Amino acid sequence: MKKFRGIYLKNENEIGLLREAGRIVASILEELRIHVAPGMRTLDFEELALSLCDAYKVKPAFKGYLGFPYALCCSVNEEVVHGFPSQRVLAEGDVVSFDMGVVHKGFYGDSALTVPVGKIDARAEDLLSVTRDSLFVGIDQAVAGNDLYDISRAVQKYVEGRGFSVVRRFVGHGIGKQLHEKPEVPNFAPAGANRVSLQPGMVLAIEPMVTAGKPEVEVLSDKWTAVTKDRSLAAHFEHTVAVTKNGPVILSVRD
């Protein structure tokens, strides 16, 4: 593993291990997704995530990380990220975001998605579609030789061009043997930021967080759950992506 400006560059073997971790996360998220329905408690998904970690023989990455008490971040409606699984019951028309990470053979996998609960209204459908598509617009810019902030600019332009807002307080990140490594990957173009040239071997967790209203968020009294200040709906999609000489490769997908 080499370093470039404090950023760890992964070799082919390390990217292979990150792909294995990402594949497991993707499989867990798919199991969670297919169980989403009105009447489910968000705590039910925590229990399912833990059982799947046991089945895959991996460690849940988030549980205990900086004191976070759960394996799964489960955020509903106006909750942007870091929501606690609880006795809350999902209702028709809600949207629920799952953010999940695992540790596999010393490497981290990390991914997220937002799921409709039953039938949702047109504005919510549009929010989910735009957030998901903005992720892939950003991934398309994860090309060796590009500026890191080409990813940020692409996400921001796509989201804001469709009438939504990108959250500034939380950003994506490098990932590898640590859950959060350099560099930060914002979903907006930070003013005055120095250019960071993307290099083969960089592995990035790219994760647009988008709101139907304004971009400002606040953290609740549990010191974790981030909600939109105006209580508008939020969505969150994330993939772990390797920068390679042949273009971006998404690692957090199932076979």
Rank of each mutant, 00 (worst) to 15 (best):
G247M: 05
G118K: 07
R195T: 13
V210P: 13
K182L: 14
A37C: 09
N187R: 06
A124Q: 07
D126H: 14
V80K: 02
K214S: 15
R169F: 12
D147S: 08
G67I: 12
V249Y: 09
K2H: 13
P69R: 06
D133L: 08
L233V: 06
L113T: 09
V241K: 03
E207G: 15
Q156N: 10
L127W: 05
V96M: 10
C73V: 09
P248K: 06
N146W: 12
V210K: 07
G16S: 15
T228L: 09
S252I: 03
P186Q: 08
M209Y: 11
S134V: 00
E160V: 12
G213T: 13
V196S: 03
I28H: 00
E125N: 12
H35T: 11
R254K: 12
K214V: 10
Q199T: 11
K3M: 13
Y149C: 10
F170A: 01
K182W: 14
P186G: 09
G176S: 08
S129Y: 12
L220M: 14
V167S: 11
H180F: 15
V243W: 00
P85W: 00
R132V: 04
L179D: 02
L204K: 11
V80Q: 04
V143N: 02
Y158D: 08
V227N: 02
V155D: 04
T228F: 03
L52R: 00
V185Q: 04
L113P: 05
C53P: 00
R231A: 05
T228G: 10
V81N: 02
C73T: 09
G109D: 00
T42M: 04
P183Q: 09
V227T: 10
D44E: 02
A205M: 11
L148G: 07
Y158V: 01
V36K: 02
G145H: 10
G16W: 06
Q141E: 15
L9T: 10
E184H: 08
I24H: 05
F237P: 11
H35D: 07
R33W: 02
K119A: 13
C53A: 07
A71W: 09
Y149P: 06
A235W: 05
A21I: 13
K177R: 15
F136V: 12
I7D: 01
E20L: 04
V137E: 03
I206S: 05
G22N: 07
L90Y: 02
R5C: 12
E12T: 15
V58Y: 03
L66A: 14
L198T: 01
L90A: 06
K177V: 11
I15D: 00
S134N: 12
A226V: 14
M40T: 09
I151V: 13
V81T: 15
L72M: 03
V166H: 06
K245A: 14
F188P: 08
Y70G: 00
R41F: 03
R5E: 15
S152L: 04
Y149A: 10
G101L: 00
V210D: 09
E160R: 08
V137C: 06
D133H: 11
E46K: 06
E12V: 11
G101D: 02
G22C: 03
R132W: 05
F4Q: 09
D222G: 13
L72S: 01
T244N: 02
V166W: 04
L90K: 01
E184N: 15
I250V: 15
R169D: 14
A234L: 08
S75M: 02
V171M: 08
N194M: 12
R231L: 13
A21H: 01
I34R: 14
E12I: 14
F98N: 01
D255Y: 14
